[in-house]
Nucleic acid binder design. Structure first.
Lengths: 164, 164
DNA sequence: TATTGTTATACTCTATAACTATA
DNA sequence: TATAGTTATAGAGTATAACAATA
């Protein structure tokens, strides 16, 4: 199984590079720039979340879908509101809640962002055989599931390992 | 080519999930915890960088390899030095520079970290056919190269697109 | 004058705690 | 009393600018 070790040894730097490309390497930030959008990443994520939902969402629901804490959403919604990209309307069903709704400009921003991002991915994969593209998506999905499971196992079943 | 669109549409959420798993989902932070290391991620990255180099490196060289700004490295090296994980020795060839050298404890930390991380990856891929593993590494590498090129193209050849 | 590293400062992302308004 | 959201605060990661020491 030397071969397996070798494959693992190559996987690690790739994951590291991917992490850099996605988070600090700022793929998403550069897409924003290229789309002419002067928005922070969490802000566009709010807009994309609303876009995917196809309608207004509560602040708490946005936070859940983005998997972040509430105040984080509050802040970025405020910024988006100042820029006229979302509106905050009262929830008729609950006076405590606020429904966040994309304005036409906000919906347009989300669409432009997604369009540039998909365009870039499309360009990147342009020369790929169809089979490779399908394999990539399939294997990446499985990797995510399996790594997620492994991480969950470590978090759950490992109550401070003994020193022995 | 509807098929291609569909594949792209699936790739995007996977990249998003991966980004979350790696950066905010804190895969690396959880590995640190599981390895019993009370270190920040940049700090362990410094140690791993030294480990890979196989010997002392200058602050600037560490920054280059980590692709971060100099002061960032300075700060984390200071923390590592306080914890006895690295030593700062003078560069005999250049009195301006400082060579950063892992102590035995620092080398041990890097090894434990890598060992846990590789173990997790190994577990995650345990049930995979060998061919799938090899394909994953190959396709992931190509994806990184191609996306990198596409991003570079956007950064280089796109001097503020006209409004038309 | 150019380079290495450090100090000072600031910004982004995100979290938790405390609080307000409503249920 | 519980819930939705906001305000206040804090900490990690990282960048740039100004500066010191040495080349």
């Amino acid at each position: 199984m030397d071969d397996d070790r070798a494959v693992l040894g190559e996987l690690l730097p790739r994951l590291t590079r991917l992490s850099e490309l996605l988070s600090r390497g700022r793929l998403f930030e550069q897409v924003l720039e290229s789309a002419g959008l002067a928005l922070e990443r969490p802000a566009i994520t709010v807009l994309v979340t609303l876009h995917r939902a196809g309608g207004p969402l509560r602040v708490g629901e946005i936070a859940t879908r983005m998997q972040v804490a509430g105040p984080h959403v509050t802040r970025h919604v405020q910024g988006l509101e100042r820029r006229g990209l979302v509106r905050r309307v009262e929830d008729p069903a609950d006076q405590r809640a606020r429904l966040i709704e994309a304005t036409p400009a906000g919906a347009d921003a989300a669409e432009r962002y997604l369009s540039v991002l998909l365009g870039w991915l499309s360009d990147a994969l342009a020369g790929w055989p169809r089979q490779d593209r399908q394999d990539l998506v399939r294997l990446l999905g499985r990797l995510l599931d399996d790594v997620h499971d492994r991480v969950a196992a470590a978090a759950g079943g490992e109550p401070e390992p003994p020193l022995s």
